[in-house]
């Protein structure tokens, strides 16, 4: 699971209101190389929740993301774009869990795949 994917997920247990973002418990993290594509980053940036992204990265001891992002940085700050790219796409949580911020329910991440399937009584 990439942090990009994590940024798009929330807990969907019926009745839960504090559902975003999931806390990430990482037992095994891998790095995979992904083609650097600044245009992709510029397109995805407005769709992300930056605070959730930065907080989650820091929880995984991934430093280097700024508190806020300016247009100028997205346009031409190569060092920023490289760090953004790396943390967004090249870090894969292989084994661990996503934890609902309200209920503490653990959703396992196995072989890089988060499993958000609910039990019948949670739907």
């Amino acid at each position: 699971m990439k942090l990009l994917t994590h940024n798009l997920l929330e807990c969907h247990i019926k009745g839960v209101t504090n559902k975003y973002p999931f806390l990430v418990e990482a037992q095994q993290v891998e790095q995979t190389e992904v083609d650097f594509n600044p245009d992709f980053l510029r397109r995805m940036y407005p769709k992300l929740d930056w605070k959730a992204f930065k907080d989650t990265a820091e929880g995984l001891k991934l430093e280097g993301l700024p508190d806020s992002v300016t247009e100028e940085m997205l346009k031409s700050d190569e060092a920023f774009l490289r760090a953004f790219h790396h943390i967004l796409l090249e870090v894969d949580v292989e084994e661990g869990a996503l934890i609902c911020p309200e209920t503490g329910r653990r959703f396992p991440i196995v072989k890089g795949i988060p499993n958000l399937l609910l039990n019948e009584d949670e739907c």
Partner: peptide, 21 residues
């Protein structure tokens, strides 16, 4: 593939936040 991909175990699109674009 570019490597920009992921897999999610869920029913339909449940668990993707509304407005996940």
């Amino acid at each position: 593939c570019s490597g920009r991909s992921d897999v999610l175990g869920t029913e339909s699109l449940l668990g993707l936040r509304p407005g996940a674009p």
